[in-house]
Design a protein around this nucleic acid. Structure first.
Length: 810
RNA sequence: GCGAGAGUGGUGGAAUGGUAGACACGCUAGAUUUAGGAUCUAGUGCCUUCGGGCGUGCGGGUUCAAGUCCCGCCUCUCGCACCA
């Protein structure tokens, strides 16, 4: 609270509270269902109920709110819901540390965060709120699991999994990050295990997920997803192993088959034992064991020298029937392709390195350019040493070789992906039970739909042990088979929480609907999401999974479109004052509440938008918020009494600047340029304050009305206060966005820049419709220009109407 | 190594190929104030003989005109990384 010049107190918190109460009473933010209006579904990523809203939540949500408010004022009916992603490790770990039940802890956090969300001054439709740990929600999550199961998209299999030894659970491949392969949640390096787990066949949709033609998403996300899916085109080639049988390899370079001088298998390849000759078996076994003991970090170190061991076996190159030795080497990964490769040292640097070390022959099959002085040659060129391919370019040679392989039954065209199926089993308590029952007689039996939800027992001991806690809850674990009625057991793993967030945007439409995941009638009116906003960190997890879900939902006949979110905007990350990531251990965490209490929500909102481009993020600046707070106070003082100066301002200039401001702010908001929009509003405020009391009341009020409307999405409380001070009818947020008039913007008098040889020499005031000749005359006769042109020849002049005259002399 | 993005005052950042540094923070001076804070006014890229000169990571180029376009480097950030 502070004294203004006029002695009135400025108390933003009281002002904001007053309007928040009024908004709630009048149900101002109940979703507009007017069918006459064009729909706009604005969605911001739902938060984890981790305790309090932190400044990152403010940074994500308040600009999204500003955009939603802008769309509302532009005449769209806007749906802007909010909810809580309430299952999962952060909530569970916090609960464990405090010894409180996760449900209690989560619900009390949600209660707290609801209050804080309301304080933000957002237009969230709280009636549509979704809480993912509510049985009313996760029932449909389980329902989706059953649908996936029916369609063969959910399957159970023993697979090598990434296991976090600290969180005591498996992780999806997407949740393992960095070269050191750490757990995405806690940063602990993961280990490998073999476990029977549930997976979703996201790979069935790999090709479709590579198609972004229907959506307007940032290039960055498209690239990340494309790389993650990692589509490679090539061929599978069958190699006979002498006296054993056939082993397949995948290659993107079938054209180089004639240069395959050896064969390499991953140490984990299931056929290793079978092909190894007795005299080589000790060495091979030692190598396999050494590879198994290696950490993932060492194993995947690119700079390490290639190592391997000869198995004693020979393969036959199907192109030329040459006998080539079979090695195992840890640079070949079991998780990609077929886990075995044909090694072509002439065209692959890794194979070249390996061949050098073990003295293996090198045959080039692509002619390198004459000046080539490298080792393996991977570029374009004519095929050589390749019989029927000789002379062909790489692309043609690939095609020809694939034809030859298929004609001769020695291989086929093939596509391989880096993308793996989505592992959804988690050995944790605080998640959604997988609705499956195991019966000795009937096998794997889905829980019948009418028995959903499988309720997560509240009284279970939830401390993680590496096995699902539900396994030790006999009331949950023991059940009977829905098919034959004999004693059976339940699946005790819970689902990855990314499943919860893969379809929440649909549940928002009808959170209490109990005949399906969402009410199709409401879906028809609102889907799909028009504008999604959230962090880039979800590029290959949430954002890929939700696209996958939507495609499956389409194939289930639940929706009639292919993509869940038409447009996406990724905001940046707000850092601590030291420009480091905010963390408790660094002690650089900014508590938004402190700033809300001191400066109000509008100031915090506006400051976060003003700090820089939204997609850029950046360090928090505790002093910077002062400037924005000052701006809001100055804005508020516009509607106060005028101290008449007696001077006169030009009403045409006022109209021009007002229209220009409307145009600029509108364009900026369309493009998410909140920072420059606020800068424009500041500039306009400074101007308005300077001419206050110097124009007629009518012009002044018109200008002020436009200004308040522009301010409304950014600082909804202050705008409401000003709107009411202007004597206008409640509420400013139900008003139409102001329009601008290009004719008014066009000035009668303009400033023309005069350059000589491209250098600025003068600025002259001229009529807007001045001719080129007149402009040149005026420019040349300018006092400041004359010294630079006198005695020189005018060779040329460039005239850019409304901007400049450039005199080229020499 | 591959891919993407970014280098502009003391700081955050503005600039459809056409006035570089909008708008703020900070700083300086002044007004007001018992003082501090708050507020208001003026100034604030660097150099200057006050004419002007130089300035957007570095080096070239295109153009009447380049922070912006092209070529070659350097640095930083992020992502992926033995993917056959």
């Amino acid at each position: 609270m502070s004294e203004t010049k006029q002695g009135r107190t400025y108390d933003p918190t009281a002002l904001e509270r007053r309007w928040q109460e009024r908004w709630a009473e009048s149900e101002l933010y109940t979703t507009d269902e007017d069918p006459e209006k064009i729909k706009h579904y604005a969605l911001t990523m739902l938060p984890y109920p981790s305790g309090d809203l932190h400044v990152g939540h403010w940074y994500a949500m308040t600009p999204s709110d500003t955009r939603a408010r802008f769309m509302r004022m532009r005449g769209f009916r806007v749906f802007f819901p909010i909810g809580f992603d309430a299952f999962g490790l952060p909530a569970e770990n916090a609960a464990i540390n405090r010894g409180i039940h996760p449900y209690k802890w989560t619900m009390s956090n949600i209660e707290n965060m609801r209050t804080q969300l309301r304080q933000m001054g957002t237009m969230f439709d709280f009636d549509s709120e979704v809480v993912t740990c509510d049985p009313e929600y996760y029932r449909w999550n389980q329902w989706f699991f059953l649908k996936f199961f029916e369609k063969g998209l959910a399957y159970r299999k023993e697979v090598p999994v990434d296991w976090c030894p600290r969180d005591n659970t498996t992780l999806a491949r997407e949740q393992v990050v960095g070269p050191e392969r750490r757990c995405e949640r806690c940063g602990t390096p993961v280990i490998r295990k073999n476990l029977v787990q549930w997976l979703f066949k996201i790979t069935d949709y790999a090709d479709e997920l590579l198609d972004f033609s229907e959506i307007d998403w940032p290039e960055r996300v498209r690239v990340l997803q494309t790389n993650w899916i990692g589509r490679s085109e090539g061929a599978e080639i069958f190699f006979e192993i002498e006296g054993i049988g056939t082993i397949e390899v995948f290659t993107t370079r079938p054209d180089t088959l004639f240069g395959a001088t050896f064969f390499v298998m991953s140490p984990e390849h299931p056929a290793v034992e079978k092909i190894t000759t007795p005299e080589r078996s000790d060495e091979v076994r030692a190598y396999v064991e050494k590879a198994a003991r290696m950490t993932e970090i060492d194993r995947t170190d690119v700079t390490r020298e290639k190592t391997g061991v000869f198995t004693g076996a020979y393969a036959i190159n199907p192109a030329n029937n040459e006998r080539i030795p079979v090695f195992i080497a840890d640079y070949v990964l079991m998780g990609y392709g077929t886990g075995a490769i044909m090694a072509v040292p002439g065209q692959d640097q890794r194979d070249w390195d390996f061949a050098g070390k073990y003295d293996l022959p090198i045959v080039r099959t692509v002619e390198p350019p004459e000046d080539f002085d490298g080792e393996a040659y991977v570029g374009e060129g004519q095929a050589i040493n390749s019989e029927f391919l000789n002379g062909l370019g790489v692309q043609d040679a690939k095609k020809r070789m694939i034809e030859w392989l298929e004609e001769n039954g020695k291989g086929r065209a093939a596509v391989t992906y880096r993308l793996r199926d989505w592992l959804i089993s988690r050995q944790r308590y605080w998640g959604n039970p997988i609705p499956i029952i195991y019966c000795d007689g009937c096998g794997t039996v889905p829980v019948p739909e009418e028995n959903l939800p499988v309720v997560l027992p509240e009284d279970a001991e939830f401390m993680p042990t590496g096995e699902s806690p539900l396994k030790r809850d006999p009331d949950f674990y023991n059940t009977e088979c829905p098919r034959c009625g004999s004693p059976a057991t339940r699946e005790t793993d819970t689902m990855d929480t990314f499943m919860d967030s893969s379809w929440y945007q649909y549940r928002y439409l009808s959170p209490h609907h109990d005949e399906g995941p969402f009410d199709p009638e409401r879906g028809a009116r609102w889907l799909p999401v028009d504008q999604y906003t959230g962090g880039i960190e979800h590029a290959v997890m949430h954002l890929l999974y939700t696209r996958f879900f939507t495609k499956v939902m389409r194939d289930l006949g639940l929706v009639d479109f292919d993509e869940p979110m038409l447009r996406l905007f990724n905001q940046g990350i707000i850092l601590g004052e030291d420009a480091e990531k905010m963390s408790k251990s660094r002690g650089n965490v900014v508590n938004p509440q402190e700033f809300v209490d001191r400066y109000g929500s509008d100031a915090l909102r506006s400051f976060l938008m003003f700090i820089g481009p939204w997609d850029q993020g950046g360090p928090w600046d505790g002093r910077g918020i002062e400037g924005v707070s000052r701006f809001l106070r100055r804005a508020l003082s516009l509607t106060g009494e005028s101290d008449l100066s007696g001077a006169e301002a030009d009403p045409a200039d006022l109209a021009r600047r007002t229209n220009r401001t409307v145009k600029k702010v509108t364009g900026d908001l369309e493009a998410f340029r909140f920072n420059t929009a606020i800068a424009t509003l500041m500039e306009h405020t400074n101007y308005l304050l300077a001419i206050k009391g110097e124009v007629g009341e009518e012009e002044w009020n018109a200008a002020l009305r436009a200004f308040v409307l522009l301010l409304a999405p950014f600082a909804p409380h202050h705008a409401e206060e000003m709107w009411s001070a202007l004597g206008e009818a409640y509420s400013v947020h139900e008003q139409a966005w102001p329009a601008w008039d290009e004719d008014v913007i066009r000035a009668q008098e303009i400033t023309l820049v005069v350059q000589v040889n491209g250098k600025l020499r003068d600025r002259i005031e001229v009529p807007a419709d001045i001719t080129e000749e007149d402009a040149r005359e005026l420019a040349i006769s300018s006092e400041r220009v004359r010294p630079h042109v006198e005695g020189k020849e005018l060779r040329k002049s460039v005239y850019v109407p409304g901007r400049l005259v450039n005199l080229v002399v020499g």
